Amino acid sequence: MSDLAFTLPDPVILAIPAFVGLAALEILVARLRRHPAYELRDTAASLTMGLVNLVQAVLFSGLIWWSLQATHQWRLFDLPFTIWTWVALLFAEDLVYYWFHRLSHEHRIWWAAHVNHHSSQHYNLSTALRQHWTGNLVFTWALWLPLALVGFPPALIVFQKGISLVYQFWIHTEQIRRLPRWFEAVFNTPSHHRVHHATNPRYLDRNYAGIFIIWDKLFGSFAPEDDAEPCRYGIVKNLGSFNPLRIAFHEWVEIGRDLRRAASLKEALGYLFGPPGWQPGGSGVTSDVLRARWQADQAAVKTTAEKTAAE
């Protein structure tokens, strides 16, 4: 193991006091505004999800570290440990996170590991802790290996992943409405991330950013928050349960049921790697279908309004 691994602190561990303090502040502000942000059972479920996620992260840390080190042995460049290397990694790692996050929404096998993070119908700082239990089992961590192949030091990659997680904690709140326009234009913010957690058709599968919202704007997945349409949180078919086991595994159970009734290998692959909601013959209700229906309704309303105005 590189000595560098022992010189870089764990950003998440260092940030724990800030997590607690910010959550307490959010509760206070929400009460003063008479807008209760927390529900005890929901928060308890989120905390349980976070604790088990921490345990599984420790269990997989050896495998992930070994994989990064092994990949780094074949690196294309010897990138020195400098501030400029870290700045380059800041953007490179965030781009990797964007595509990891997008794949986790667009393909059911990875959505099954990620869906629990979206399962709360509340949106507060405890929601940030509602993390996966099964993502490492489906090799989501492998998407970061190319960074080691390029030549970024493995310890710096792990450190930057921690920085990203810490950054994303504070954007899980309704208490901050908008930040300065320049900040909203470049960075992921509470406004942008509320859109990501919303189930409104216009907001579905948008704003995958980690730190920089520029990736969503570059790759066509950005949607601004519209104050005229408040975000509705949760998933398309809400669970109605605070049981952490159901939260963590419900989509895997549904995948198992679909695979048992698959009539062919093609159908089985569709259930695994198609978008959430996919069904044979195009009969499923996916995010794209819901968005298309919403757009058609909006167009119909606009046409009716124009005809009425013309009369």
Results as ranks from 00 to 15, higher is better:
His114Leu: 02
His114Arg: 06
His114Pro: 01
His114Met: 00
His114Gly: 00
His114Ile: 01
His114Asn: 02
Val115Leu: 05
Val115Trp: 05
Val115Ser: 13
Val115Ala: 12
Val115Glu: 14
Asn116Val: 12
Asn116Ile: 14
Asn116Ser: 13
Asn116Met: 15
Asn116Pro: 01
Asn116Cys: 13
His117Met: 06
His117Asn: 07
His117Leu: 03
His117Lys: 10
His118Tyr: 00
His118Arg: 00
His118Met: 01
His118Asn: 03
His118Ala: 06
Ser119Gln: 15
Ser119Ile: 08
Ser120Arg: 11
Ser120Thr: 10
Ser120Met: 07
Gln121His: 12
Gln121Ser: 15
Gln121Met: 10
Gln121Lys: 11
Gln121Thr: 15
His122Gly: 10
His122Tyr: 08
His122Trp: 12
Tyr123His: 14
Tyr123Glu: 02
Tyr123Trp: 05
Tyr123Thr: 03
Tyr123Val: 05
Tyr123Lys: 09
Asn124Lys: 06
Asn124Asp: 14
Asn124His: 08
Asn124Ile: 08
Asn124Tyr: 05
Asn124Trp: 07
Leu125Lys: 06
Leu125Gly: 11
Leu125Gln: 10
Leu125Asp: 06
Ser126Pro: 10
Ser126Ala: 14
Ser126Tyr: 08
Ser126Gly: 07
Ser126Trp: 11
Ser126Cys: 13
Ser126Glu: 09
Thr127Pro: 04
Thr127Phe: 03
Thr127Val: 15
Thr127Gly: 12
Thr127Lys: 03
Ala128Ile: 11
Ala128Glu: 02
Ala128Phe: 00
Ala128Thr: 00
Ala128Leu: 07
Ala128Val: 09
Leu129His: 04
Leu129Trp: 05
Leu129Asn: 02
Arg130Gly: 04
Arg130Asn: 04
Gln131Ile: 05
Gln131Asn: 13
His132Arg: 08
His132Lys: 11
His132Val: 06
His132Phe: 08
Trp133Ser: 07
Trp133His: 07
Trp133Val: 02
Trp133Lys: 04
Thr134Val: 08
Thr134Ser: 14
Thr134Ile: 01
Thr134Trp: 03
Gly135Thr: 09
Gly135Cys: 10
Gly135Arg: 10
Gly135Ile: 07
Asn136Cys: 04
Asn136His: 15
Asn136Gly: 09
Asn136Ser: 13
Leu137Asn: 04
Leu137Ser: 14
Leu137Ile: 13
Val138Ala: 12
Phe139Ile: 02
Phe139Asp: 00
Phe139Cys: 11
Phe139Ala: 12
Thr140Tyr: 01
Thr140Cys: 09
Thr140Ser: 11
Thr140Glu: 10
Thr140Lys: 07
Thr140Ala: 06
Thr140Leu: 12
Trp141Thr: 09
Trp141Tyr: 15
Ala142Cys: 15
Ala142Gly: 01
Ala142Val: 14
Leu143Lys: 04
Leu143Ala: 14
Leu143Asn: 02
Leu143Gly: 09
Leu143His: 05
Trp144Val: 12
Trp144Asn: 11
Trp144Gly: 11
Trp144Arg: 14
Trp144Ala: 13
Leu145His: 07
Leu145Met: 04
Leu145Arg: 00
Leu145Asp: 00
Pro146Met: 10
Pro146Asp: 03
Pro146Lys: 10
Pro146Val: 02
Leu147Lys: 07
Leu147Trp: 01
Leu147Gly: 05
Ala148Cys: 00
Ala148Pro: 01
Ala148Val: 05
Ala148Met: 04
Ala148Tyr: 00
Ala148Trp: 02
